[in-house]
Amino acid sequence: MSEEMSYSIAVGRLEEIVADLERGGIALDETLKLYEEGAKLLEFCQQELASAEGRLNEMRLSEIEEKLAE
């Protein structure tokens, strides 16, 4: 499973968790488990979003080939 896939999977799971919690009628322990799982998934997703940010490198082909040959 690639990391990109797991962002989508995390989002899917978060949707399930929110739906379960909003529907209610679940045991207290289960609620807390869902809550903690949701918090972890959110943290993961936020990291994923943050990790897309980076530098803009503009190089000519020859420069990048030299860099790769180092």
Binding site: A52, E53, G54, R55, L56, N57, E58, M59, R60, L61
Partner: peptide, 9 residues
Amino acid sequence: GIRRTVIGV
């Protein structure tokens, strides 16, 4: 700020 590497050809 999305990370990009431009390879100029």
